[in-house]
Amino acid sequence: MEKKLSEMKYEEEGIVKKIRGDLKDRIAGMGIREGKEIKMMTKQPIKGPVVVAVDRANTSIGVGLADKITVEVGK
């Protein structure tokens, strides 16, 4: 099932499926690329940032950005 990264639940794991084109370069440096395994670590209430883990590294990204990333979860 595909969903937005921002819709992932706490501790849910998935694979990055699609990142909006103009954002790819912006977050590639943080290790978030298509095909990467990703896990939701922390969600902040009221549209706060989300913390995700990619390759053992935690990265916090804005919820607006997380909205534009599609992940494949639960096989």
Partner: peptide, 12 residues
């Protein structure tokens, strides 16, 4: 401990 992530900048 996070080599892959750091290599992005290295390659750039």
């Amino acid at each position: 401990s996070k080599v892959e992530r750091g290599l992005y900048l290295a390659l750039e």
